[in-house]
């Protein structure tokens, strides 16, 4: 187990390094000169241009710039923003640093609990009208993109009924709609998987044995069947989390939430590439950490994984 964990952590550091190299290379391909863009109306001022170029380190050879980039990541400043002159990226994004991870973690927790409950509910009532109704809701929940869902929900709950605010952040009632929109697609996905795995487990011999020895239905479902459903479900949580992180870009933009997702989109339009790349890096680190935790949990539960057999995709 320890060996497996070590191998995974070394792999993780490799992924981070590749992500750092990729974001650095990406900025080199961006069209236009950021310093010229910053100067705008003072573009004739050669002295100022040279001073800015030196300040941002853009007058130095590429490999020195890369070492600077690494150093800035290591000391946590992430370099200087293009949009807010002389301001470190860390200061620009500080306000959103807690909002987005919190939003994502709260949403995934709700989605897992709600999804498993719905899935079990549908599975034990296989082929009944309740099952069909749940499946219909699930397909809709998985299919409709979050911003289209937002249009409907905002229209009904904020505009027609007037129960909830249209946008904003800070108060509890302002969080309800964004969280709901982030939660619905992963909930539907998890519920559908739970239903499928549950039906498979319920057809196994040990379930028949449990029933034959007279265990009550609830005990069979929650003690015997659910446990064996949760293990394969765990492997998909990482992927679902990736979708949820991308969802924060959209939801934060719609509801005017000052998180990292909205900042990333704004920085793309402002051509503030240091900010864009820092946020992409942070999302990648966050995503890979969640995946590491999921994989370690899975390995702890299933010895075949840590003994070196690859998990099927």
């Amino acid at each position: 187990m320890l060996g497996y964990a070590l191998r995974r952590i070394v792999g993780l550091i490799g992924v981070w390094f590749v992500a750092i190299v990729l974001t650095f290379v990406a900025v080199q391909f961006v069209p236009g000169d950021p310093i010229v863009a910053m100067l705008s109306d003072q573009s004739g001022d050669r002295a100022l241009e040279a001073r800015l170029r030196a300040e941002y380190g853009l007058d130095r050879p590429l490999w020195v710039q890369f070492v600077d980039y690494l150093r800035n990541i290591a000391n946590g400043s992430f370099g200087l923003s293009f949009r807010y002159a002389q301001t470190p990226v860390s200061e620009v994004i500080a306000g959103g640093l807690l909002i987005t991870p919190l939003l994502a973690l709260v949403s995934i927790s709700i989605a897992v609990m709600l999804g498993v409950l719905l899935g079990v509910f549908a599975a034990v009532r296989q082929n009944s009208w309740a099952d069909t109704a749940v499946i219909l809701v699930l397909v809709t929940g998985i299919s409709i993109p979050n911003f289209a869902m937002a249009a409907f929900l905002v229209y009904v709950f904020a505009i027609q009924l007037g129960w909830l605010p249209v946008a904003g952040w800070g108060r509890l009632d302002q969080m309800l709609l964004p969280v709901a929109i982030l939660v619905i697609p992963p909930t539907a996905y998890i519920a559908r998987l739970t239903r499928t795995y549950m039906l498979e487990v319920l057809s196994r011999d040990y379930i028949r044995t449990a029933r034959a020895k007279g265990l009550r239905q609830r005990l069979v479902i929650y003690r015997h069947a659910l446990r064996n459903t949760l293990v394969p479900l765990l492997t998909t949580v990482g992927i679902i989390f990736g979708g949820l992180l991308s969802g924060t870009f959209v939801v934060e933009t719609i509801f005017n939430i000052p998180g990292l997702g909205r900042m990333a989109i704004e920085s793309i339009f402002a051509r503030d590439y240091p900010v864009t790349m820092t946020i992409v890096l942070l999302f990648t680190v966050f995503y890979s950490l969640i995946n590491l935790i999921v994989d370690l949990a899975y390995a702890a539960l299933d010895p075949r994984i840590r003994l070196g057999q690859e998990r099927g995709t």
Binding site: V15, A19, T23, A26, G242, S246, T284, Y287
Partner: peptide, 11 residues
């Protein structure tokens, strides 16, 4: 695969 797919597409 190490990146969330939509975020990579945005990048």
């Amino acid at each position: 695969f190490a990146f969330p797919e939509l975020i990579l597409a945005i990048l």
